[in-house]
Simulated assay, not measured.
Amino acid sequence: MKVVIQRCKHARVVVGEQVTGEIGQGLMVLVGVTHEDETKDAVYLAEKVAGLRIFEDDDHKMNLSVQDMGGSILSVSQFTLYGDSRKGKRPSFMAAARPEAAQKLYELFNAELRSRGLSVETGIFGADMDVSLTNWGPVTLILDSRS
């Protein structure tokens, strides 16, 4: 399981004309699932994301987590994180999990974040989404449960 985390001042997801998720300060998290992922991968990454200290404290050091600063999370499923473009010009998505399995782990990941007291907004799994954010810093990190 992979996540791309972006510290943001504002983020939102729109499907069609409807805003399905919107947050102020917090984390924009793109979530990719591979067919080898299990429950433990979702739990591990949720714990890591919730406690990741990438917000500045009063001394301007990255020392606070999204939990510490009372921020929110916008979580968006993103199968293209498992795109492989080593051969040719068109990426292969063979490493991405089948939608049914991916959705279960994506929803578990979000439930684990919520169980840690975080406010979590989402897009719509499998939908064509317009995602926007104001990256704060910018700060962008990639975490992989297999690394």
Rank of each mutant, 00 (worst) to 15 (best):
R90W: 14
S115N: 15
K87W: 01
H60C: 05
R90M: 12
D68L: 03
E36I: 08
D130K: 14
H35K: 12
L27W: 07
V4R: 09
D128L: 13
Y82C: 11
R98V: 08
I54S: 00
G26L: 12
Q25D: 14
T20W: 09
R146N: 11
S65C: 13
E100S: 14
E38C: 15
A46L: 11
G126C: 11
Y44R: 10
H35N: 12
R90C: 02
V19H: 10
V76R: 00
W136E: 12
M129S: 03
G137V: 13
T140I: 10
E112N: 07
F125M: 09
G83C: 12
P91M: 02
K9V: 10
P99A: 06
V120Q: 06
L118F: 14
G26C: 14
E100V: 11
K104M: 05
D84W: 02
Y106G: 09
E100A: 08
R114W: 04
A95N: 12
N110T: 11
S65R: 04
R98N: 13
T20H: 03
K89R: 15
F109V: 11
F93Q: 01
K40F: 06
R90L: 03
M69A: 06
V120C: 04
Q25Y: 03
V3E: 04
E107I: 01
E36A: 13
M1W: 01
V14A: 05
E100C: 05
R90H: 13
T34Y: 06
K48M: 10
S119Y: 04
A50K: 13
G83L: 03
S119M: 05
Q25S: 12
D128I: 14
A127R: 09
G71R: 14
V13W: 02
L64I: 03
Q18G: 02
E22P: 07
R90Y: 07
G16T: 02
W136A: 09
D128P: 02
A127Q: 09
G71W: 15
E22A: 15
Q25G: 09
Q78R: 00
F79A: 03
E112Y: 04
S132G: 15
D59P: 05
R98D: 15
Q18C: 10
S75N: 02
L118E: 11
R146T: 05
L105T: 05
D59A: 07
G126L: 06
Y106Q: 07
A50P: 04
D144T: 14
V120D: 01
M62C: 11
L64G: 00
G26W: 10
V31D: 00
V49N: 01
L27G: 01
M62Q: 10
I124H: 05
D84E: 11
Q6F: 06
V3W: 03
N135V: 11
D41Q: 14
